[in-house]
Each structure stands twice: as C-alpha cells, then as structure tokens.
Design a binder for these strands. Structure first.
Lengths: 159, 159
DNA sequence: GTTGGTGCAAATTGTTTGCATATAA
DNA sequence: TTATATGCAAACAATTTGCACCAAC
C-alpha cells in the first residue's frame, strides 16, 4: 500500500473516531510507508530519527502515540522477530495480506513469505483443539546464504 | 524432564563452565520444573514468588540470573506468547522435543501442539529461500471452546 | 584462599503519562 | 470555541549491574 492510500485509511479512521488529522500524524505515516523504509521493520527510534530529519520538533511520545493509532486502524503490526530484541518493531500492513518471516541468525536479514499449505494445516490443528483461528505468527530462524551475509552477533536473535 | 534430570543437566553445565552449584540455583530449577508449575509458562515474577515461599532470602536478581543460565544450557526458552505482554515468560525445554502454541484470545488458555507436516513444509520454504533452519516459532491465536472460557480482556494478547 | 555468587539498591531501557500550551475542527 | 494533540519531563515497569559481603570449590 502506498503512503497516500495509508493516509486515506488513517484519515477515515480519525474522522470516524472524532480525532484530528495533524501534520505530525501525516508525517509519521508518510515516513512509515516510505518505500525506502517499508521493508525494514522499523523501531520507534528508527521512525523518530527519520521523522526528526524532516521536522525537528516532533517528540518521541508523538511517535509512540501515532504508531498506536496506526496499529488500531490496521495499518501497522507490532513485531518482535528477534526474541532477544527488547524494542518493538513495526511492520506496515495491507488489509487482506499476510506473510510470515524467515530471519537469518547471522546477519539479521529478513525474508517475508506466504504459504497456503501451511495455513491450511494450521486450520486443521486449530479445529482439532476446538479453536477458531483469528490469526497467527510464524518465524523461522536459520542461516541464510547471501554472499554478503556476515555474522552480526548483535543482530538480534538467538531465538 | 523431571526436576532431578534438569538438575543433572544444570550441574554438568556449571561444572563445564567452571561455575558453582548453589542452593539458590538448585531451588529455582526445582521450582521451574515442578510438575504443578511446569505448564504455566511462568514469568520471573511467578518464579520469584514460588521460590520465596521456600526461601525468603532469595533476591529477584538471582532469579533473573539463574533463568539466564537455564536458557544457556537449553533447559528453558524465553517466550512472549501474547505480543502485548511485556514480561518474558519461560518454558521448560527437553532436548529433542518441540512444540508450538495455540493461544485463546479470550481466556489466555494455551495449548501446545506438534505437527510434522507443517515442519516439513517449513523446510521446503526455507530451502526455497536458501535458509538452513535452526529453529522456529509458531503461535496461532484464536478463540477456544472451553466451557469455562471467559473473556479476560487483560489476559494478554491482541496479537 | 580464590573465584565466583548473592542480595540489595541504584542504574538502564523501552514505553507511558500528566500537564501546560498549541492547533484542528 | 472547544475538544483533542503536542512536546517536554517525570513516571513506570522489566531487566541489568555495581558492590560489599558470602559461600563453593
């Protein structure tokens, strides 16, 4: 989803809730959906720094509060891909899409994928235990084979 | 794995590392592997309270430090099943075993399961992207059908 | 006797909140 | 004009760390 579409979704949500469209909320949303940035699962701090580059007055708290709004209206999902990561990272969401993650334990590289066969099996499992699935999370940790994969012990994850 | 077996694993690990076996480390490990407790994915605070019931002098920091040791020697895994939970919870591990989780969004009930077909498909996915799998995490969120399932909005997870 | 452990309290870190001011509606 | 947002600093909560004393080895 483009940043323009995301803004539309956000503004509709704000209107419906009687909240206000502000320059800060627009800017943060634009940064979050910026194609140069989108794939990075940014933390609040990442977002804060990029936002400050465009408007030096935005506060940390505003970024937190805006990300909470984006989550509420379905435009973002909080993630914790590396179980040792302490900060929450955010992923842009497009309604109807879903993907899971492959995370390289060496370089931190993240690949998103989707697999219908796995999802069908998940349905079977859930049914067997009397659960109605709302959603799921799946992360596979391993070692990637990128030529530029270098050990980054601090990269996050020992899962 | 029984608490006795766990203690053996821990002591072997401590010895190999030149570390010391102490009463506190033994007690915390026993509590963590106590069958009455095992299934509960306890937080450090849960453990701390049960440990204090047996020895009123143990400090919070010691529980943290000991859980870190248990993770290092493979006896425990840190989990964050409800993405809104802030505290880390721990799950007892037995080498060679693996299970994933079903979490009820209403009552917080957790079911552990294992599914080889899903794991086989994960291998396929990883191979397709050039990843060698080390391990994985899968959590399915939904609504359970237990008769005593009651909405616990604070129960944890809106994933 | 050494080396490592414990308990406490203080420090750190990520996140939230209270409040006076500013701004969208 | 009136309700909501903002930015700042202070508050919080989970976890970590420094240090004086203790206890395994």
């Amino acid at each position: 989803m483009t940043s323009t579409e995301a803004l539309d979704v956000l503004e509709a949500y704000l209107q419906r809730k009687g909240l206000k469209t502000t320059a800060q909320r627009r800017l943060i949303t634009e940064v979050f959906f910026d194609p140069r940035f989108k794939k990075d699962h940014p933390s609040v701090d990442d977002l804060f720094r990029h936002v400050r580059a465009q408007d030096a007055n935005v506060g940390y708290a505003t970024v937190y509060r805006t990300m909470k709004l984006l989550v509420e209206c379905g435009l973002a999902s909080p993630r914790q891909l590396g179980p040792t990561d302490k900060e929450t990272r955010y992923e842009p969401e497009s309604p109807g899409e879903h993907h899971d993650h492959l995370v390289c334990l060496d370089c931190g590289h993240i690949v998103e994928f989707e697999n219908e066969a796995i999802e069908a099996l998940q349905e079977d499992v859930a049914r067997a235990y009397g659960f109605a699935i709302k959603e799921h999370r799946m992360v596979i940790y391993g070692h990637c084979t990128r030529t530029d994969c270098e050990r980054r012990p601090s990269a996050g994850a020992h899962p």
